[in-house]
Design a protein around this nucleic acid. Sequence first.
DNA 1: AAATTCTCCTGAAGGC
DNA 2: TGCCTTCAGGAGAATT
Length: 270
Amino acid sequence: MPELPEVETTRSGIAPHIQGQRISGVVVRQPRLRWPIPGNLGDLLGGRTVRAVERRAKYLLLRLSNGSLILHLGMSGSLRILPRDTVPGKHDHFDLLFKQCCLRLRDPRRFGAVLWTDQPVEQHPLIAHLGPEPLSEEFNGVYLHRQAQQRRVAIKNLIMDGRVVVGVGNIYANEALFRAGIHPARPAGRISLARCARLAEEIKQVLAAAIIQGGTTLRDFQQEDGKPGYFAQELLVYGKAGSPCPGCGNPLKQQRIGQRSSVYCSRCQR
DNA sequence: AAATTCTCCTGAAGGC
DNA sequence: TGCCTTCAGGAGAATT
């Protein structure tokens, strides 16, 4: 499922194909995503050139001269670059057509989004109140520790809260907490500065490593060329409940924390 | 105010 | 073989 590494992999994959290219058409086959795809996208986008392909949190931003197209992959979405005449599949909901190719959104569970804004994208309601990027210097141990003060919520929920830090979804939250030796259910306010620093560092490390591998493919995720991401083979705990802990050999436990499945070692993580 | 629950959706997997 | 139930989850909205 697309988290930050998968979205960044998608961004870097599609950018060379569409940056500087003119949009010749828009196809909407199924407008009912998380929010309806605007009906006038054809008029807004037709003939415009994609100036830049950027990412903020898990949102992809296609910058045009008259505004920005905001794309979100939800949890089962993927974007591919295809020949223009490729026959669409069942869940291929949206195409942007270019002279040489087609950018196609596939999203079986339809939790994704295709939105438009003609305002500065930083002011969009979905983006304006987001926390810092995890790979930025702004996100560090001191910052995380400060955010955790007086908070009784589980640390795993805190690092998955987009107002605190963006882009950390369930897979990488589990992995980072294991690598940092912190129990996912530990109250956020009861973690020392040193351990917050370790956690912030592990979040950065695991995200950066996953970007290099092209993200994690469990079921749906595909890179822009249709290939899977290869970070799944480097996951230490996610999806491995019952297996021996890579650190101590004890069976990994699974527990729901904040409606999310969490995997951890009760011996290595405190 | 903070924390929890609900909601959208499809497909895989398990039970009988 | 097939139908039913359960689970998975990003993140905004609603509720406690």
